[in-house]
Nucleic acid binder design. Structure first.
Lengths: 188, 188
DNA sequence: CAGTTCGCTCAACAGGCGTTGACTCAACGA
DNA sequence: TCGTTGAGTCAACGCCTGTTGAGCGAACTG
């Protein structure tokens, strides 16, 4: 695809954006290893060499594609924490951004994606832990995140029959007691 | 490695076992794609061609390596279900079999591993659902499994700081209320 | 002891991968 | 108008992969 008649800067911007979109889609669908630069370029209607020219390497393309905006920190109550967690990871409002799916899809098999995942999860855990009382606040916060991670993996990545088409409110309703037990002061 | 002086049948048995052990270890460590037949053969001190001769293809080797014995079905009470779930996926008694780790490591990026994972998880969900009352027994059972999956992924595969070295009883204690809420009749 | 079997190795193949450097040509600036 | 820039292409490179077929030599069989 060569969109003619456009200023150079605009063409470049659009091509870069198309490549990033294709990269996110393919990384999310099949993971880092199976998503080839050739396939990404084809979907973006661009030559594979252009991908290299713009992003330097497949690894750098991946990092650009999965980069997520850091979440603003803010003090939360214990109750808010539960609702916040339930809103994480795309159960609420349907879809998760492709960039997050791409990171999750690759995090078990691509070392660099694992680093990103640990970083993102760690930041969220820190954030939650501030609102959870007790010595083991970080452990409790981590378990809350892992619960959401597990459900999201089953739902979005493994596409389990039992979770397909279930309204997000129902899942949230079933998960809430467990998350409240983790967020609340009691629980021992 | 050629162990001399052994009967042919015994040599064959040992080589096959060494290959399977190496395969499980490498699939568990780096996943299907990054675990090359050459690396597996090297670790088993064997020629790569022998792996093909014995198992036919990398795919068949993977299937043999991750094959898990089907779990015996048995009727359980709701309380037993919770303890059973907490015992799943290797939180109890430390380690999970390498074959399970291999399957989990690859399930997001290797289609065949995803099929295996869905099958194994589906069987466990069916089993749990029999002991959970209500219309949404299968959904509740699925969420229980996903909780354990998430925690196990964080613990065994992502190796999160927050979960490292935490005694299994502590994690079980923190997770129990949430699992009981899912297993119990009330919860709406 | 001769002949066969078979566990195992060796060397090579074809194909796909990330990556590169030379090239084309339309948009640009003076 | 004309040289320069830079977006985009093309063809190829070296490497690594799963996989194969021929062959060796020790364990077997009679």
């Amino acid at each position: 695809m060569v969109e003619k008649g456009l200023p150079r800067a605009e063409r470049r911007r659009r091509s870069e954006e198309r490549i990033l979109a294709s990269a996110r889609a393919l990384f999310a669908e099949v993971g880092f290893e199976r998503a080839t630069i050739r396939a990404i370029a084809k979907q973006a209607e661009v030559d594979p060499a252009l991908v290299m020219q713009y992003f330097g390497s497949k690894q750098e393309l991946f990092q650009r594609a999965v980069r997520v905006a850091p979440v603003a920190h803010g003090a939360l109550s214990a109750d808010e924490v539960v609702e916040q967690v339930l809103g994480t990871l795309g159960l609420k409002l349907g879809e998760l951004p492709q960039s997050s799916l791409a990171m999750m899809r690759s995090m078990l098999t691509h070392p660099e994606a694992a680093v990103s995942a640990r970083k993102v999860l760690g930041e969220q855990i820190d954030r939650l832990a501030q609102a959870v009382p007790g010595e083991d606040a970080r452990l409790r916060a981590a378990l809350m995140m892992m619960i959401m991670l597990g459900v999201t993996v089953g739902h979005q990545l493994l596409d389990l029959d039992e979770l397909r088409g279930v309204p997000q409110e129902e899942i949230a309703r079933l998960l809430r007691p467990g998350l409240q037990a983790l967020a609340g002061p009691e629980g021992s």
